[in-house]
Design a protein around this nucleic acid. Structure first.
Lengths: 142, 142
DNA sequence: TATGATGTAACGTCAACTATTACATTGTTG
DNA sequence: CAACAATGTAATAGTTGACGTTACATCATA
């Protein structure tokens, strides 16, 4: 299973706002054209980012802005906004192991702490990267 | 998105083989009863574990055995067998960013290395745990 | 040869992702 | 105020993958 493209789309959105925000008004159509997906998909993701407090979207007039410096927005902040899984739910556990079997009865207890560690390792690595890292690398390529 | 239950089922399979293997013949029906899923699901996962060289399954007579000591089988070995994603594919990238847009043209280059790091952090953490850790914890609970 | 087990094909159901159309709502501007 | 450009969101559909189930050919042994 993969993490949905909402995550990479969201990063792309931030990169566009940061790169073009001073020159253009960043509408969902503008973003849809760069990202090459339907504007409604963009608006749903914008809505999630807005609910997480990472951006502001102007109604009526239109346009997206970022609410704080992009070197203060980590990949994890974005992931949390668009794709969040509760702690310990990265792994889909089979629902009803047999409670009459010694293994079935104890498998959850024996596994859960380790699965949490693995999920946390991924999330901690996500906290090491910021939107600014991406924008800087793009600017160097331009 | 979650990692499929094949992973936790596979761990459960190993725990059963290791715990009951000397006393009982471990058939797919036996496992299905402890794990509480359909025997055919079990056989598909057994087939993946067999292809990865982690277990042997006796045709005709039936029964599953492990090919090496369980303290030498890591969570990553299991994950690789039942759920493998190619390097850099944990994240689903939107397919066709606009090559005429400076951001769209460079987003892949700017992101890919970071996504690989995140995936690798998760996989490295998986390598720290073995089936033996799980079996020992279950035995202590019994 | 009968038996108990595996291997696998062929369906079916369900949930999530993504795409798309449609339209009510909103703020600005002529 | 009316026209407009844009957002917010509901509704629908196609696609994919996970998981469940039935059915049956194949296999090793008693």
């Amino acid at each position: 299973m993969q993490i949905s493209s909402r995550f990479t789309i969201a990063i792309h959105i931030f990169a566009c706002v940061e790169t073009f925000g001073e020159e253009y008004k960043i509408t969902s159509d503008f973003l849809a054209s760069s990202i090459n997906v339907n504007p409604v998909i963009i608006r749903k993701i914008l809505s999630q980012l807005r609910n997480a407090g990472l951006i502001e979207v102007a109604r009526g007039t239109g346009g997206t802005t970022v609410t704080r410096p992009v070197d203060k927005i980590t990949f994890y902040d974005v992931y949390e906004a668009v794709d969040l899984l509760e702690e310990g739910t990265l792994f889909h556990f089979h629902e009803n192991p047999n409670p009459c079997c010694p293994v079935g009865k104890n498998i959850h207890t024996a596994l859960d702490d380790k699965l949490v560690c693995i999920q946390r390792a991924m999330e901690d690595e996500m906290k090491k990267f910021t939107i600014a890292d991406v924008v800087n690398k793009i600017k160097r390529s331009m």
